[in-house]
């Protein structure tokens, strides 16, 4: 049990670091550094805990990103920065890089190497399942981050 918890904590801390790394590449304001790390960490812990309990990676990613988006608005009021500034970097570690890699690998094998028809069929399955997982994760990131920003904007925009 402690083993699993430690593993979850470790991977979440690394997602926080990844979020922060990209934040620094995008030149985020110095005062948002802690927020970006915390949001990346939170999104990571939600995603990996859900995956651990058998939720599909697509839904887990969506919920993690949705949390970032929903927390973004109240935090924006507290630290006085627009939400996009610290909501985009924590989503970057959610990008399905490994699925993209597997998809490319399957496509290359299919096009260049394989002659055997039954192996080609197996490669098509690889291609489609990895490719669609990748696409749906990307869609869930996009919806998860922009939905709260758009839904909550009208009601909570600061009054002058």
């Amino acid at each position: 049990m402690t083993d699993i918890l430690l593993k979850l904590l470790e991977v979440s801390i690394w997602s926080g670091i990844a979020a922060l790394g990209f934040g620094i590449l995008f030149n985020i304001p110095k005062t948002t550094i802690i927020t970006v790390f915390a949001l990346g960490f939170l999104a990571g812990i939600i995603k990996f805990t859900l995956i651990h309990f058998g939720v599909s990676i697509i839904l887990a990613t969506f919920l993690g990103v949705l949390l970032v988006g929903c927390l973004g608005i109240p935090i924006a009021h507290r630290i006085h920065h627009p939400p996009v500034v610290f909501c985009i970097p924590p989503c970057i570690p959610m990008i399905p890089g490994y699925f993209a890699y597997e998809t490319i690998l399957a496509i290359m094998n299919f096009l260049i190497l394989e002659e055997d028809a039954s192996k080609k069929a197996a490669l098509i399955i690889d291609m489609v399942s990895n490719g669609f997982t990748m696409v749906f994760i990307l869609i869930s990131i996009a919806i998860g981050i922009s939905l709260p920003l758009i839904l909550l904007r009208k009601s909570t925009v600061k009054k002058v």
């Binding site: 997602s15 670091i17 990844a18 790394g21 990209f22 620094i24 590449l25 570690p93 890089g97 490994y98």
Partner: peptide, 23 residues
């Protein structure tokens, strides 16, 4: 000012390492 270039490079490389841990 932007962040110093060396800091950006190291931060992004750490992010790459973090990605690797995630996968």
């Amino acid at each position: 000012k932007r962040y110093p270039q060396i800091l950006v490079t190291i931060a992004v490389s750490l992010a790459g390492a973090g990605f690797c841990n995630i996968f």
